[in-house]
Amino acid sequence: MQALRTAATGMAAQQLNVEVISNNIANMNTVGFKKQRAEFQDLLYQTMVQAGAQSSDQGNIVPTGVQVGAGVKAGSVYRIDTQGTMTQTGNKLDTAIDGRGYFQVLLPTGETAYTRAGNFSVNDQGQLVTQDGYLVQPTMTIPQDATNVAISKSGQVQVTQPGNPTPTIVGQLELATFMNEGGLSAQGSNLFKETAASGAPTTGVPGDQGMGEILQGYTEASNVDAVSEITALIVAQRAYEMNSKVISTADNMLGVANQIKS
């Protein structure tokens, strides 16, 4: 019975939906996290009667065909890259991007990863690093005796040192943008990697055309909206239940067929 398999595809799709929603809720407080959505597509159709086929020599055509669908599949899980709200932290090395763009991070493998999470720290050599200790590109070193760090909107990093009233420039933060941000592949730890779908990165200085600006002392919160996630969860759960009802009905009908007296 096709209905059994069709309903099974429906249950599998809703399970994926719940997994995506639960990941959104789990990352509600993750800095720079972008919510994801599972979108579905119908599967192939089996055509029993072709619509538009000729039904007689006189040129009459079949007005409606008979097509039976095979269920549903996950078309894509896509990221909704809208701006998250800015949370003030007061930490001098916390930066948030207001607008488009990603910070570049050097992975231990030598590859470059991209992140929206700008909650940076310094390592034992005074270099600007992410929460995982990966170097922020281009690298910069904050002197040990720095009394103050100022990061401008355009990403210029200046430090004030004792005995020197004028701040010294120690580096310039750069941003990377992509043609298709949704095509970046998530690597975990708030990091993304470039793919063929995302296109090659375009790097530039914050505030340039098409690039966001840097806010110092803020972090970008996730763009997950708790209420809509919970509503989506309820919808997914009910849809799952309905598909399981189809399975039990199909099973019931098969049972009836088996009991017909011969």
Binding site: A3, L4, G10, V68, G69, G71, V72, M242, V246, A250
Partner: peptide
Amino acid sequence: LDIVANNIANA
């Protein structure tokens, strides 16, 4: 039933 199942799967 096959068609109803497809409707529900694609709800």
